[in-house]
Design a protein around this nucleic acid. Structure first.
Lengths: 211, 211
DNA sequence: CGCGTAGTTGAACTCCATCAATGTCAGTGG
DNA sequence: CCACTGACATTGATGGAGTTCAACTACGCG
């Protein structure tokens, strides 16, 4: 996984967040941009009726909390141990300023949020949950530093459920079916082994291989 | 509806598109940015299996086709008669450059795509289709120049279905139910009258008012 | 006028949500 | 070290919402 950081780590403080800790809160003023250096962060919203939604997962290299709206649309919470740099909105804008004149690098970086939202849309528009789940696994496997086909998988099924807008029970059953089909293997809840990536891709594209 | 355009119309050619016409095509190089001046444009993707998806609707003031990725992720097609300005990627970047140094205006403009993707996620994560449909109607009513509560409504139910990832039949039935509940009225397929906006909002928040 | 596309309606079925019970695991404090 | 606790995961049974299929209608456009 190639990661291209834009903020100068030596200028800004590299901060750490423990699992569950909040980087910024939904509704607060967008006065800082956050660039992730390691770990996984989830974007969470709580609707008025108390409905929890995970609007996206973010990884090393992603910039989140962009000042595109007045206030943050979601809360950012560390899923794993995470490190990040926090930069004031104004100095971030100046960095963007520099980048605009020269190349597109910065522009690509600011697409992390948009990518995340777009991909969730893609995933949620799958017809059956099995292909949803398979597509989801593929989408995050590619973002996690995988030595071989074995990756740390520290996402709770509840997070996955709130992300795909399905019930936790269904997530559990889908994962089980994928295990039974020998597409994946999970020695522990926190370890995911992809046994048959091709099968996973087939299932993701259409859930017809549901023999 | 206040619209704030960034591109100088006198410098660039104001173009027109008829319903169904394509502004840019999924997969093509991102070498132009499109700013809409009037009309409705839909973002469409066709997956490998031929599955059609509407990833977003765009309106006057929105910038689409941003060079955040190498190639366009979706095709942009006019839904209604639409006018727009097409600007080369490089000159667009220079305009962004100017904006970065001064204020956030340009940054807000480039959030149109992101907003669209985010809102689709919000809508799709609704549990029942009635509230989905109600929320969808509210979301576009606010973007259409509504004289009173009567708006031109030229979206086909198929587009709505592909947008919400539900079947066209269900869209039809949902609209009928909303009509029966006297939340809306549709003298023609192309005219939508909001009879009871409050009811619509209630239904959107939770589909419990399903008497 | 006739054709094609979009919308409408009904009936059957499928899949997923829901509820409830049980199991598992990590952390805590006795 | 073990019991206790709480959060998360698992599994089964049930019902219901939405898909699917099919037939029919309405509408626009040549």
């Amino acid at each position: 996984v190639q990661v291209h950081f834009s903020l100068n780590q030596s200028c800004s403080l590299l901060r750490n967040a423990h699992p569950g800790q909040t980087l910024f809160r939904q509704g607060d003023d967008c006065d800082h941009v956050f660039e992730l250096y390691s770990g996984i962060v989830r974007g969470v919203t709580i609707s008025e009726e108390g409905q929890r939604k995970v609007v996206g997962f973010f990884f090393a290299g992603d910039q989140i909390g962009l000042p595109l709206s007045r206030s943050y649309r979601f809360s950012a919470e560390a899923v794993t141990e995470a490190s990040y740099v926090r930069q004031a909105e104004e100095s971030w804008r100046l960095a963007l300023f520099d980048s605009c004149s020269s190349d597109r690098n910065m522009l690509r970086l600011i697409s992390a949020e948009q990518d995340a939202f777009y991909r969730r849309g893609e995933l949620m528009s799958c017809r059956n949950v099995l292909s949803q789940t398979a597509a989801f696994l593929l989408s995050i496997i590619d973002r996690l530093a995988g030595q071989g086909n074995r990756v740390d998988f520290r996402l709770s099924q509840i997070d996955i459920a709130d992300y795909l807008a399905i019930s936790p029970e269904t997530v559990c059953r889908s994962l089980r079916r994928l295990r039974e089909m020998h597409a994946i293997e999970m020695p522990t809840h926190s370890i995911l082994v992809v046994q048959d990536r091709e099968m996973l891709e087939t299932i993701a594209q259409d859930g017809l291989a549901a023999g």
